[in-house]
Computed example of a mutant assay.
Amino acid sequence: MSAADSIVCPQVDVIIPHYRAIDRLERCLQSLRRTSYPSMTIIVVDNGGGDPALRQLISRYPGASLLSLSENRGYSGGCNAGFRASTADFVVFMNDDTTHDFRWLRELVSAAVEEPGIAALQPKILSMQEHRKGRNVFDYAGGAGGMLDRFGYPWCYGRSFFGVEEDRGQYDTPRNIFWASGAAMLVRRSSFEEVGGFDDSFFMHMEEIDLCWRLLLAGYRIRSVPSSVVWHEGGASLAYGAPEKIYCNHRNNLVMLAKNLGIASLVPVLSARLLLEPAAALFYLMKGRNGLAGFAAVFRALRDFFIGLSRTNGSRRQIQGLRKRSDGAIFRNQPFSIFLTGRRAS
């Protein structure tokens, strides 16, 4: 009998933000129904989509409920609303474009119960598109766990400049990671509340990295659980290279740096990033299709970052009050630069 089979099964609430893709959600719910975990409930957060068929769909799944919002609050706002409607000691934040191995949740909970110092855990996330072709390939957005270089560029185990790796078991040892993917992450309720949950202003993209960074500052660990497997469609909300995706990634990344870095690190890192952002804009411009829109998205992100500095500084003061670890300790096992290691930013 494995450790996952022998654990007491605490209640888990699975929170799924959803917006106008009912077929995708139905596939996710059908997969979750096969989960071998006895104490799981599901909260679907309708982000202002207003599809009248949604309530009827949810009613077909015992243990599932619907929380309807009057407007689209994005991933971060939808998840926060779902969290406030939940009661379990453990919550899973999950994209609706996922399917799941039947033991995925049991493995995550087992790891969380065994080590109380862990605040968030991520399964191994594989590509759903490649899975349909009979191949085990890591998902671009989650892989086998996320890391962050010293300039704030994120990357994943299982992803490089040369493409996404095939899963051959090379990352099957559980490890500490910097961030867990929002495609599927289990979080301890008390830790999530302690650091203030997701930042609503992020709307989508980078919010899980920002959350995990605050959990690390507060002294917790983030962990990969490769024995838990989830498949992710990827790019279902916004296609890779979409201008709005570029905008959110760049704006939110700069906000995240400004909030979470200590002052000694913040000045050189943010200065370097502000020099690198125009270079990123030129990169998008040279990509051809949608290049001009991507170029403009970077400068919109820079503009809105500066406009929002007052709010960011207010959040920064609260976050730095959580600090139990230095930047040096947090980044000790992170690469200096993904551009030197061959890893690729999201």
Rank of each mutant, 00 (worst) to 15 (best):
S2T: 11
P10M: 01
P10L: 08
Q11V: 11
Q11R: 07
V12A: 04
V12R: 01
I16T: 11
P17S: 09
R20A: 13
A21I: 03
I22T: 15
C28N: 13
Q30R: 14
L32H: 10
R33F: 09
R33D: 15
R34P: 02
T35V: 10
Y37D: 08
I43S: 03
V44L: 04
V45I: 09
V45P: 04
G48R: 06
G49C: 13
L54R: 14
R55T: 15
I58C: 13
Y61A: 13
L67E: 13
L69Y: 06
G74W: 01
G74F: 08
S76R: 06
G77F: 14
S86G: 09
T87L: 11
A88L: 10
F90G: 12
V91N: 14
V92T: 14
N95I: 11
T99Y: 11
T99N: 12
F102R: 06
L105I: 04
E107V: 02
L108M: 13
V113N: 04
Q122C: 14
Q122W: 00
P123K: 03
K124W: 06
L126P: 05
M128A: 15
H131F: 15
K133V: 08
G134M: 04
V137C: 06
V137E: 10
F138I: 06
D139Q: 06
A141F: 14
G143N: 07
A144H: 03
M147W: 08
L148M: 12
L148V: 13
D149T: 04
Y153R: 03
P154L: 00
C156H: 06
G158Y: 02
S160I: 07
V164F: 08
E165G: 07
E166H: 01
R168V: 09
T173G: 04
P174N: 02
P174F: 08
F178G: 00
F178Q: 05
M185K: 03
V187C: 11
R188W: 03
F192K: 02
F192C: 07
E193K: 13
E194T: 12
C212R: 04
C212L: 09
L215Q: 13
L217E: 02
L217N: 11
I222V: 15
P226V: 12
E233F: 00
A236D: 07
S237E: 05
Y240F: 10
Y240Q: 00
I246F: 01
N249H: 12
L254V: 07
A258R: 01
A258E: 07
K259L: 08
I263R: 05
S265D: 01
L266I: 05
V269W: 02
L270Y: 12
L270S: 05
A272F: 10
R273K: 06
L276I: 13
A280R: 10
G288E: 06
N290I: 14
L292M: 08
A293E: 14
V298Y: 00
R300H: 08
R300C: 01
L302F: 02
R303S: 04
D304Y: 00
D304G: 03
F305T: 03
F306W: 09
S310M: 07
T312A: 14
R316T: 11
R317G: 03
I319Y: 06
D327F: 01
G328P: 00
G328Y: 02
G328H: 07
I338P: 09
I338S: 09
L340W: 03
G342M: 13
A345C: 12
